[in-house]
Design a protein around this nucleic acid. Structure first.
Lengths: 114, 114
DNA sequence: GATTTGGTTAGTCATATGGCTAACTATCTG
DNA sequence: CAGATAGTTAGCCATATGACTAACCAAATC
């Protein structure tokens, strides 16, 4: 994985990691608490956390022997934007096609009829 | 990858595939046209398309020797929803914390102070 | 100060992913 | 029909990913 957005989507492609994100929206938590509901070994879970952190989705810091993890806003909004942008362009196109179907508009040149 | 949402995010974690989606929002296209801007072998590209199709992000059908690919609306909106939902919960929580910081609200029981 | 607790590092393993080439099929076009 | 065009299948390879165990370190706690 090279860039940030790759890592972002990749991070969310795993159910364990999405569950962690969902949990974290309800408040920060220490590693052990985040780990508890998941039936996988702790080291494995730690690597999931690291993936989330590398994707910029969470931050964490250690105080004493406890590492607390919090969610990070930015990337969530960014990806949401990307998806919305794609959907909107696509919907706009559908609208044009709809209008076209009703004969209210000139045909679009060199574009396929879907 | 087991379920649909896993596949969805996974599909979008690759730049080639995101590019294809972006292209497809501007209209359906045959495989060869989609492939053209990408500097990878056709079989490799075909597998990307298959990943997108398995994720439910695109559909395609073949007429004669040409396979035309179109984008699929649903999943895009779904994922967008998921992201928005997470962001909103998180933002709501931030608001509560803000209010709390200003002493306008009772402290939240057994929840961390961020 | 010994022991538990919370996390970490290191190393192994199986499967998935992304890339390639070679060879093949099916449809147009000249 | 011969050849070009558009995809497809098969098989290979390197690296990434997700899971494990074992061993370890550092901060509480008894």
């Amino acid at each position: 994985m090279t860039n940030q957005i790759d890592r972002f989507f990749s991070a969310l492609s795993d159910p364990t990691r999405r569950a962690v994100i969902e949990r974290l929206t309800r408040g920060s938590a220490p590693v052990s608490e985040l780990h508890a509901p998941h039936d996988i070994a702790l080291p494995t879970f730690l690597r999931h956390l690291r993936v989330l952190e590398d994707a910029g989705l969470v931050r964490s810091e250690k105080k004493g022997r406890i590492r607390t993890v919090h969610i990070e806003a930015g990337p969530l909004a960014e990806a949401e934007d990307w998806l919305r942008r794609q959907r909107r362009i696509w919907e706009a196109r559908l609208d044009r096609l709809g209008a076209l179907a009703e004969g209210l508009e000139e045909p679009l040149k060199q574009e396929e009829t879907e």
